[in-house]
Design a protein around this nucleic acid. Structure first.
Lengths: 157, 157
DNA sequence: GTATCTGCAAACCATTTGCTTTCAC
DNA sequence: GTGAAAGCAAATGGTTTGCAGATAC
């Protein structure tokens, strides 16, 4: 259990460094703020909001601005290293997902938590593809996203 | 073709009057603004934003306020006569869907158009339910939303 | 040295709220 | 007449923008 936790943590650490490496290779500068944002974000599987990240970084960077957080998240999204999720209600703002692998989401209506669900791929299943072709002729599907809405365990299932 | 168009149009008209009837039965007042909003909304299968509706109603009701549009849409949603759509990273505010039947959506990445796709129900398929139970223990699924992202026919598929 | 980034503050947009007036019932 | 609804305007909260100064390269 100890070993397992350590391993998972290490995997996230590797992921963070990988993201930084990709940014660097793409010609982006390695500023302390950017490095801190990417490291914190890549290790957080809880789909943080910009607010979340900002507040957790403020102790280390009291002068940091929201724009810097948004800029970095935008850059990551444009490079395909993260996704922007707007799955909840209008309140609370967008959530950001550092997981680039194909997966779906379960959203808790009560607390707004987002859980990752595995998906073999983001291509539509056979039946889905046929249905789309029939009802939306000419529509080319690039990816499918499933959102499971309900109530999570901690909010009393 | 002429007949078909007329029929489809008539079905939407009926749907509008049905919505108004339901509102009336639930004790809501039939104000001119509310009637106009519901009629315009029920006939629009293009998933309009609040902005869209507001601007198209302004000529007839120059004094109408945004709050009235939002109030009416909220009321419809609470009565289960419409749905509020926040499909992923779409900028530009929520879209509203007057179609109360279970269905999913195809979103065009190029022009932002939203197409309805039929669904037998919004409950998860057998395999989906199992997958959620396994990966998110204790999560109770209330409804599933499938979003098919791609390019629509008019945007050159 | 220079192009890029950061910090800041103001702008922006969708949405909500409080309060007064109006109107459907 | 009465209570619900509309209008209005201002607040809200997340996100974006423009620019001046700082800094990674």
């Amino acid at each position: 259990m100890k070993a397992r936790t350590t391993t998972a943590r290490e995997a996230l650490d590797r992921r963070a460094e990988e993201m930084l490496h990709d940014l660097k290779c793409a010609g982006f500068k390695m500023t302390p703020q950017r490095m801190a944002i990417v490291r914190l974000f890549a290790r957080d599987l809880g789909h943080p909001t910009a607010q979340d990240l900002f507040e957790r970084l403020r102790p280390a960077f009291p002068s940091m601005s929201f724009a810097t957080v948004y800029n970095t998240l935008d850059t990551l999204a444009q490079m395909g290293l993260s996704r922007t999720l707007r799955l909840g209600d209008a309140k609370g703002g967008a959530r950001f997902d550092p997981n680039p692998d194909p997966h779906h989401h379960a959203v808790c209506d009560a607390c707004g938590a987002i859980l990752d669900l595995p998906a073999p791929s983001l291509l539509p299943a056979k039946g889905e593809a046929l249905m789309v072709r029939e009802r939306a002729p000419g529509f080319t599907v690039r990816a499918v996203e499933h959102v499971y809405r309900g109530v999570c365990a901690s909010c009393h299932g």
